[in-house]
Structures are given as structure tokens and as C-alpha cells.
């Protein structure tokens, strides 16, 4: 199967195949290390642990990038409207 090297726009040479697969494996290993070693360790640091605990307790999706993806935003909006509208 022909493959394109996005850096050059040329087809990948056969000789670079092994290096490519090694690179891919290393990249995946890096993601695994981040998810299972670095970030869990970081989550336990004294400064970070309380915030991470608050996220875990409230089951917040910290990766939500838009307000409709966050259930908390809908509740917050309702609360705020009532608080400043009727009180």
C-alpha cells in the first residue's frame, strides 16, 4: 500500500518502515505513561489533589469545551436566573 510522508509529500520509503513503526510504538507508550504514571502521580501532589478530588466528587467532565456539553452549566444558569431575577 502506498503511504505519503506528510512532511515531504513524498511516498514513504521501505527502509523507513521499521523506524516508523518504532516511532508509533514509542508514541503510544508515551500516551500510556502519561495516562497511567505521570498524571496519576501529579493528581496526588498536595497542590493538585484537592482540585482533582473536587472534580472526582462532582463527576465533572473537565474536557467539555462548550457550554452545552456541561450539565452543570444548565443548572448554574437556572440558579443564577432565579437568584437575581426573583430575590
Amino acid at each position: 500500500m502506498q503511504k505519503m510522508d506528510v512532511q515531504t509529500g513524498n511516498m514513504v520509503k521501505k527502509g523507513g518502515k521499521l523506524r516508523g513503526w518504532l516511532g508509533l510504538t514509542a508514541g503510544l507508550a508515551l500516551i500510556w505513561t502519561l495516562a497511567y504514571v505521570i498524571l496519576p502521580w501529579g493528581s496526588k501532589l498536595p497542590l493538585i489533589a484537592p482540585v482533582m478530588q473536587a472534580i472526582a466528587v462532582s463527576d465533572i467532565d473537565a474536557g467539555a469545551y462548550w457550554y452545552t456539553q456541561s450539565e452543570e452549566t444548565a443548572i448554574a444558569q437556572m440558579y443564577v436566573r432565579h437568584a437575581i431575577g426573583s430575590k
Binding site: 500500500m1 503511504k3 505519503m4 510522508d5 506528510v6 514513504v12 518504532l22 508509533l24 508514541g27
Partner: peptide, 15 residues
């Protein structure tokens, strides 16, 4: 993005 880049810049993106 990272997954795609990892593929594209290592084993290459099939045409």
C-alpha cells in the same frame, strides 16, 4: 489530533 499526527509522522498516512 495527536493520534493522527503520530500515524502521519511515523508510519505515514496511507494515500
Amino acid at each position: 489530533i495527536l493520534g493522527g499526527m503520530l500515524i502521519a509522522n511515523t508510519v505515514g498516512t496511507p494515500k
